[in-house]
Design a protein around this nucleic acid. Structure first.
Length: 341
DNA sequence: TCCTGGAGCTGGATTACCAA
DNA sequence: TTGGTAATCCAGCTCCAGGA
């Protein structure tokens, strides 16, 4: 057999059996050389690896999965709320997950769940399509967390979970929001208003908690009539802004980039100049806000790194490596023109 | 002849056990 | 110490024997 042509022409059909026959050894020897496990001489291993590279051998992942009882697939679960999927957070996080998964020869299967509808996730589990899951949004009483825990399916949460024993990768939301709120107050913004969205989301609660702690740390009691929670629609955000404009407020603090972009549109409609008439800050910055003029003061989280870390921790857990129960990544506070005097 | 059920084979890779 | 044999993973398929 002509090794060079054989390798190029049948690139996706070469098996360890073919290589074993070609080199006059058993397929066990080929397997050991490739995996690095088991006893094999350095000379034989070098000879095998050299031939594998020359003929462009790629392991058959289905066969490997069959032998190891693994799929080499990771399930990533996104919220099925279309608005949420338009938020750059999920797109960037997914990119980070895919980047890390690919480097470990895993593929990514993307699915969605609703607040009470986890049928697509259940289907992936029952059909044994994935080895583990990464959940990108958690709620206070989370059906997906309960289901995966009950069925002992490995999973990692991007965010925070109140359930015990859940592996979590998150940012220092409370600390970050507390610090940013403190800095705003120190810059003479004493009268703050807060607009937040769905309070059943744990991240929403954490950011709100950080805001409250930041106020209390600076001996300021946030007025309840200046706090707008569960503004889940554009109309609700606009009504909140309308209300705020009738009060003596120094700065609107937005829970995330989506709310902030709606606030900015409403302020523009009302001809409110930023920062002269109203200052604006957001607890999360993204492409939504990147091109706004004036630039918006935001909290910056490295979401791609978050995706990377979540995927790495899951793969480690699947490989039997001991992993930390909770990993917290850092943040940056970018003060821009929207909160300048 | 048709239907049913069991046995055995197939794919490619891993791995426990054994021999040289 | 090194490398080979054979079992194993699992779902789907084919083949064959036996019964209705």
């Amino acid at each position: 057999m002509n090794e060079r042509n054989w390798g190029k022409e049948n690139n996706n059909k070469i098996t360890i059996d073919d290589i074993a026959k070609e080199l006059g050894v058993s397929k066990t020897t080929i397997s050991r050389a490739i995996s690095g496990k088991g006893r094999i001489s350095a000379t034989t291993r070098k000879r095998v690896l050299s031939f594998c590279e020359e003929c462009g051998y790629k392991p058959n992942m289905i066969a490997r999965g069959l032998a190891e009882s693994k799929t080499y697939n990771i399930g990533v679960v996104l919220p099925n709320d279309s608005d949420l999927n338009e938020i750059p957070f999920f797109q960037v996080c997914l990119l980070g997950i895919i980047e890390m998964a690919t480097s470990y020869e895993y593929d990514v299967v993307v699915s969605t769940v609703g607040a009470d509808d986890i049928t697509k996730l259940v289907r992936l589990v029952e059909n044994q399509k994935v080895d583990g899951f990464i959940l990108t949004r958690t709620r206070i009483h989370d059906a997906q967390v309960e289901y995966l825990s009950k069925h002992k399916v490995p999973f990692v949460v991007v965010g925070t979970s109140e359930s015990s024993g859940v592996i979590q990768i998150d940012n220092h939301h409370v600390e970050a929001c507390r610090e940013m709120t403190s800095l705003l107050i120190m810059q003479k913004m004493k009268r703050l208003s807060f607009i937040g969205n769905n309070s059943t989301h744990i991240v929403s609660r954490m950011r709100y908690q950080g805001f409250i702690e930041g106020c209390e740390l600076n001996q300021i009691s946030p007025r309840s009539d200046c706090i707008y929670l569960d503004c889940n629609t554009r109309l609700m955000v606009e009504q909140a802004v309308d209300d705020i404009l009738h009060k003596r407020i120094d700065c609107i603090v937005c829970m995330d980039d989506k709310i902030c972009s709606q606030v900015l549109l409403k302020l523009a409609t009302e001809h409110v100049k930023i920062p002269r008439d109203m200052k604006v800050a957001s607890f999360y910055g993204s492409l939504f806000l990147a091109s706004h003029n004036p630039p918006i003061t935001t909290l910056e989280f490295d979401v791609k790194a978050l995706g990377n870390a979540a995927c790495k921790v899951l793969i480690d857990a699947l490989s039997g490596v001991e992993v930390q129960q909770k990993t917290l990544l850092g943040y940056d506070i970018n003060f821009k023109a929207s909160t300048k005097k």
